[in-house]
Structures are given as structure tokens and as C-alpha cells.
């Protein structure tokens, strides 16, 4: 059989590489929308803020409101609860944060009501620190929503919020 001698690189090499390159771009371009469509959509992102009237919340009471589909705890803390939170030594905290850094006004603690372990809603006024106790795997939070015992790695998350007036808070 006669040997076919081709220049190197030849036209076929060029077509091979060019086709491969275009193919890779097309695959990437096709896969990305298929993955990205699963991200929160525009209508979900639009539920970004919620306003709460805190005027009716009595001292010692915790009210749960819904923000972005998640529970948010608004806790009107008693003087003892604030003092307990402030008395905790930093060395006893798994995710150290001062009480001052967790509440814009000391008597109002506003936290996302989702356990930072695996997402259950903790129960208020329960557990050894009388902050919160998560029934799912036993995480314990104090009256500043800081993690004190159990498998959760982080403090309850602080949502962005601002006081619109003395009795109105906008979350988000």
C-alpha cells in the first residue's frame, strides 16, 4: 500500500482542533443554562424585604416572622437575658462575638431562626442558657443567639435590618 505523506500540521489537524474547540464552547454554553436555571429565580429574589411592627411585642416574648421564606426571630429581651448574654466569657464561645455586636438595640435581638447545623427551627426559651434549643440534634444557643453546645458550628445568623421608626423594623 502506498504511503500517504501529509504536511504536518495539515488541514485535517486544523479541522480536528477547530471542531473540538467549537464543540467545547457549545457544550459549556448548553450546560450552563441547565445548571443556572436552578438558582433562586427573579420572583424569589424579589421577596427581599419585610417590615415588622415590634410595638406589640411584650418583654420576654419572641415573635417569629417570615422573611425570604425563612423564619426570623424578633426577641424582646429582658434585663436578665441581656445581662446573661453579656456575662458570657469569650473563651466559652465556639463562634466568639460580643453581645453588643449582635443587637443594634440591646433589648431587641433579631436573628434568622434557622439552626446553623442542618436547618431546623430552634425552640425559644429552652436549653441550659434559656436562649434556644434545637430539637433536631441538640444544639444550644444563648440569649444572644450564640452557639454554646451541640453540633452547630456558628451563631444564629443576623439578617440585615434597620429601624424605620421606634416601633418599625425593616428586615432585608
Amino acid at each position: 500500500m502506498a504511503e500517504i505523506i501529509l504536511d504536518d500540521p495539515n488541514r485535517r489537524d486544523f479541522l480536528y482542533i477547530a471542531t473540538g474547540a467549537v464543540g467545547a464552547v457549545l457544550v459549556g454554553g448548553a450546560v450552563w443554562p441547565l445548571i443556572n436555571q436552578m438558582e433562586p429565580d427573579a420572583s424569589t429574589l424579589a421577596q427581599a424585604t419585610t417590615e415588622v411592627d415590634i410595638g406589640g411585642i411584650a418583654e420576654g416574648q419572641i415573635v417569629t416572622i417570615k422573611w425570604q421564606g425563612k423564619p426570623v426571630f424578633v426577641r424582646h429581651r429582658t434585663a436578665k437575658e441581656i445581662a446573661d448574654a453579656r456575662a458570657a466569657p469569650m473563651s466559652a464561645l465556639k463562634d466568639p462575638a460580643t453581645d453588643e455586636s449582635r443587637a443594634q438595640k440591646p433589648e431587641w435581638l433579631i436573628v434568622v431562626g434557622i439552626c446553623t447545623h442542618l436547618g431546623c427551627v430552634p425552640l425559644g426559651h429552652q436549653g441550659p442558657f434559656e436562649g434556644w434549643f434545637c430539637p433536631c440534634h441538640g444544639s444550644v444557643y444563648d440569649t444572644a443567639g450564640r452557639i454554646r453546645q451541640g453540633p452547630a458550628p456558628k451563631n444564629l445568623v443576623l439578617p440585615p435590618y434597620k429601624y424605620v421608626s421606634d416601633t418599625k423594623v425593616q428586615i432585608g
Binding site: 438558582e39 433562586p40 424569589t44 421564606g69 434557622i114 442542618l118 436547618g119 431546623c120
Partner: peptide
């Protein structure tokens, strides 16, 4: 909620992955 939150344990990208799985900020 608990099972999808397992993915939030992945370092750095965990929360992003969980939100992607949910298509929102919670199971909905």
C-alpha cells in the same frame, strides 16, 4: 431541609450549593 443542609457543610461554597439545590432561601 436537614438532608439538603448537609451540603452546607462543604467549605466555602456550601451555602451557595444549598441555595442552588433549593432554588430559593429555604425549602419551598
Amino acid at each position: 431541609t436537614v438532608i439538603t443542609s448537609l451540603f452546607s457543610a462543604i467549605p466555602f461554597v456550601g451555602n451557595a450549593v444549598t441555595q442552588w439545590l433549593w432554588g430559593g432561601f429555604a425549602v419551598d
